[in-house]
Amino acid sequence: MMPLTLVSSGETNVIQRIGGKPEVKKHLEHLGFVVGSEVTVVSSIGGNLIVNVKDARIAISKEMAAKIMV
């Protein structure tokens, strides 16, 4: 298991765990980041990520991405 920040562009992984405070988990869940769903890193710019999750393209900060374990 590793944080989403270490995943290479174009690589698809399954979300194993989401860390952080309850409100952070809830926010990520509303964006589509739920345990068991697939996430693909589209690109990484300065550590911030653009990812595909549940047929949507979402930009997240490196702090948020570090809480998502794949």
Rank of each mutant, 00 (worst) to 15 (best):
M1L: 12
M1W: 04
M2Q: 13
P3H: 03
P3F: 04
L4Q: 09
L6I: 12
L6G: 03
V7M: 14
V7T: 14
V7L: 15
S8M: 13
S8H: 11
S8I: 00
S8L: 13
S8W: 00
S9F: 04
G10E: 06
G10H: 10
T12C: 10
T12Q: 12
N13C: 14
N13E: 08
V14K: 15
V14A: 12
V14D: 08
V14S: 14
Q16L: 14
Q16S: 15
R17A: 09
I18R: 09
G19K: 11
G20E: 06
G20T: 08
G20V: 06
G20P: 05
K21A: 14
K21V: 11
K21D: 10
P22I: 08
P22S: 12
E23K: 14
H27L: 15
H27C: 03
H30N: 15
L31D: 10
L31Y: 07
L31T: 10
G32Q: 02
G32H: 03
G32N: 13
G32A: 11
G32S: 08
F33H: 10
V35E: 12
V35L: 06
V35Q: 13
G36D: 11
G36W: 02
G36F: 11
S37M: 07
S37L: 09
E38W: 01
E38S: 15
E38R: 15
E38D: 13
E38V: 01
T40S: 02
V41G: 05
V41D: 03
V41T: 02
V42D: 14
V42S: 07
S43V: 06
S43T: 07
S44W: 06
S44M: 09
S44D: 06
I45Q: 14
I45F: 09
G46W: 02
G46C: 08
G46F: 04
G47F: 11
G47I: 13
N48Q: 03
L49W: 02
N52P: 01
N52I: 11
V53K: 03
V53H: 09
V53A: 02
V53D: 04
D55G: 08
D55H: 10
A56N: 14
A56P: 05
R57H: 05
R57F: 01
R57C: 04
I58S: 05
I58G: 00
I58K: 08
I58F: 05
A59C: 04
I60Q: 02
I60V: 12
S61Y: 04
K62R: 14
K62Q: 08
E63Y: 03
E63G: 02
E63P: 07
M64D: 02
M64R: 02
M64V: 04
A65P: 07
A65H: 05
K67E: 01
I68V: 15
M69Q: 09
M69N: 06
V70S: 03
V70D: 00
V70T: 13
